Simulated assay, not measured.
Amino acid sequence: MASSRPRRTDPDARRPLGVHLREFRNRLILAVIGIAIGAVVGWFLYEPIFEALQRPILQAAEEQDALVTVNFAGLVTALDMQIKVAIFAGVVLAAPWWLYQLWAFVAPGLKKREKWYTVGFLGTSIPLFVGGLALAAWVYPRAVVILTGFTPEGGTNVLDAQMLMTFTMRLFLAFGVAFVFPVLMVFLTWAGIVRTRTWLKGWRWAVLIIFIAAAVLTPTPDVFTMLTMAFPMVGLYFAGIGVGWLRERKRPSLEDL
């Protein structure tokens, strides 16, 4: 005889679209506030950050015995440069906060027993994001040397400050965000949205997409920078598959999608 007991449903699953949009707006506002606070700190860190960005350029000029320098080509360029550096520093310093807002937005869609995943994924995302930034810091001076090395003998390479900052921000943020992607993979697997075998079957397409993404995201045209991003991403992709597989072994009843 069928039980007359009412079926329990997650109240978050019945939330209307308007509630989700308001939640997204609130989380976005909180993330922006955190970045703004980080930018205030970054404003006072402008000089050491700019010196670190300029150091490889001065080193390239010394090694190549050529004029390689940063040029501030406008009246407000120096101020604009400092603002961009501050915002960039704010994004980096506030990474734990805006990553938390991302996972906090996703968490209501999980089952109650799965909401603790947010803590684990946040604890993994932050080191991976920092690891991506560290790899970008290793790539940046080498990319500067490679690219300025194409300057013909006797020529000069006057780098526009605005373009240099745009180049640097894209490089660092591309590496940082790319390294967080495997965490999203594991999240989708553990939540039962995508099976491990689905990731594994599509590994050829995944590798192709990773290399294309690395070519698009990296602001430099050299193969060295692209491969430096692509190879770790491929390794993290298969690592994500491995972590998801370990979870599925403990939960063999995971429904096929």
Rank of each mutant, 00 (worst) to 15 (best):
G176E: 00
E23F: 06
W190E: 02
L184H: 14
F172T: 10
L122I: 13
E51W: 03
L128F: 14
D80Q: 12
Y140S: 03
M185S: 11
V70K: 02
V68G: 13
M163Q: 04
R251K: 08
A239W: 13
D12L: 03
I33A: 03
R8N: 06
L53I: 15
G244N: 12
T196D: 00
R55T: 10
L208K: 04
V32S: 07
T218A: 08
G202M: 09
A230N: 00
M169Q: 11
V85P: 14
V70D: 00
R113S: 13
P6S: 09
L21V: 12
L93T: 10
M233C: 15
V41G: 00
V106G: 04
A13H: 10
Q82H: 11
N71F: 12
L257M: 13
V40Y: 07
L93N: 01
P56S: 03
L45N: 04
A239Q: 08
V144L: 05
V91T: 03
V106M: 10
I49L: 11
A143H: 01
T118C: 09
P11G: 06
E23W: 01
V186R: 07
D80H: 09
A36W: 03
Y117V: 03
G235Q: 05
F167K: 00
P252E: 07
G74I: 06
G34I: 08
L67Y: 09
I49G: 06
Y100K: 08
M81H: 11
L110W: 15
R204D: 05
V40G: 12
G154L: 04
S3Q: 00
L79V: 14
K84E: 11
G123F: 09
I210H: 01
W97K: 12
L21K: 07
V76Y: 14
V145K: 02
R251A: 12
T156H: 03
L79A: 14
K201W: 14
Q162I: 10
L102I: 12
